[in-house]
Design a protein around this nucleic acid. Structure first.
Lengths: 197, 197
DNA sequence: TAGATTGTTAATCGATTAACAATC
DNA sequence: TAGATTGTTAATCGATTAACAATC
């Protein structure tokens, strides 16, 4: 569930000397309610100690397992433009076990460019790349008009998780997860609050 | 509210010849419930016509007004790295009236680089830039460790809306809006579903 | 033991949806 | 008029929070 990454990050920001952590402390730092924390952790099957709190190291380990962060995932970025470039260089991915194994682009002029130490490959090779490198996650960083086609190809090739940065809603069959990051929508939500002040 | 940008985008994708649109059609395209649409629009003060639906052009206009998209907003990007670069080049911003008026960076080596047709300026000039160019929205595209300091300076300079791409939670006083886009969290949510299959 | 904190149930709250009279 | 669709109320649902016995 989507609060787990927040807990994990919060725990990481704790002092190295802190062995236990109460639901209250975790809640305050994560910006949620302590009952929420206890419920989430309880659902996860993590047990704290009454009167003491949760063991930080054990909790981190549990969260990492629950989030599937104990193994690495191969990520392919489709789109070698500015955004794909930025994503390829994003250091945070490696920290959490996401390996960018390919950057592909439809534009022959971009093929061969080096993004984050990886040479951009042709979009035509997408299917082969997904299969050979066991790509688990596809990131779409293309213009909107290309997004659906790219998604279809990723899915046909076996990818079941997609992070979509293109400003387009893409249709996917059941069993495929898509998360969308829409920069314009984020800004529009900000302006909604901005102008009604 | 955060569904409004979705409605707006959906309406934009309608054929140019479609004059009216039912709550049912809008709901299907936007992936929500028709009662939801009617309630949202009713709350907005938009009136449809029973038996007919909503007037598309009027609805778009209402949504644009509600979202504060009838005027332009000056945006400053802090961080002239890959992400700042990608954001500066993001065409979608201009479409919705967001003008990137500055890209600043703390690194003297980056100052002078041209990002999206704009020369990167020193972070030290942030306060002056915000004041002179009437910056309404600040985008933080710095490393995590710099995020809070940058936010503090943006807020001190008068910025009330912040979009934070740095993987850090930033503390802001009441009256300041922050939206956070955390790429690692997005991927972690995907893996949560991935590995439990 | 006394204080602290969990784990969980029950209460609350808010958001979503069903339903339907109003009416174009 | 008949069919379609809104606007809104009431019902439902799910998520959040309060509360407290259990217990370290």
């Amino acid at each position: 569930m989507s609060r787990l990454p927040v807990y994990l990050r919060t725990l990481g920001s704790l002092g190295a000397d802190q062995r236990t952590c109460s639901s209250e402390q975790l809640a305050t730092l994560a910006g949620v309610h302590s009952a929420q924390v206890r419920k989430d952790l309880s659902f996860l099957g993590v047990n704290g100690t009454r009167g003491i709190g949760y063991d930080v190291a054990a909790l981190i380990e549990h969260l990492r397992r629950a989030l599937g962060l104990t193994k690495n995932y191969a990520v392919a970025i489709v789109g070698g433009g500015n955004l794909g470039n930025a994503l390829g260089n994003y250091a945070g991915f490696a920290t959490w076990g996401f390996d960018v194994v390919a950057v592909v682009d439809a534009d022959p002029a971009k093929v061969g460019n080096v993004v984050a130490g990886i040479a951009v490959e042709p979009l035509d090779d997408l299917e082969r790349i997904v299969a050979e490198r066991d790509v688990a996650i596809g990131i779409i960083a293309t213009p909107a008009r290309a997004a659906q086609d790219v998604a279809d190809r990723l899915i046909a090739a076996g990818v079941r998780s997609i992070l979509n940065f293109a400003p387009a809603v893409i249709e996917v069959p059941a069993g495929v997860d898509v998360r969308r990051v829409d920069l314009s929508t984020e800004l529009q939500i900000l302006t909604y609050h901005l102008h009604r002040r």
